[in-house]
Amino acid sequence: MLDVTMVAILVTMALALARASMGPTVFDRILAVNMFGTKTVLLIAVIGFLTDRPEFLDLGLVYALINFIGVVALLRFIRFGHFAEPDEAERMDR
């Protein structure tokens, strides 16, 4: 059962990778990257249960947080084009 899950996750990862590399718009790519991170978390969880090491779940949690930070940074960059604070950015624009 877990083997089947693992294969399914790997196939999904391959599909997300294909979308990230082809993706016509930037949002396809962001979605694919986010999805890929999520699948990595799931993969870690499945590996943890396959090898009887449930403490891998903690690692999965950290990966989820990192993925979140990365995607937020990407979205912020695409929306604003920089990482400065809003008031400061206003000052820099002037």
């Binding site: 990778l17 990230a20 590399s21 993706g23 930037v26 790519r29 962001i30 694919a32 990257v33 890929f36 991170g37 990595t40 993969l43 870690i44 590996i47 891998f56 690692l59 990966y63 993925n67 990365g70 990407l74 960059f77 695409i78």
Partner: peptide, 19 residues
């Protein structure tokens, strides 16, 4: 920009492999 996103994917894959 797409290359930066793909390096993120690459790191996740590398991390999974090291795991």
């Amino acid at each position: 920009l797409a290359a930066v996103m793909l390096t993120g994917i690459y790191s996740f894959l590398g991390a999974g492999w090291m795991l």
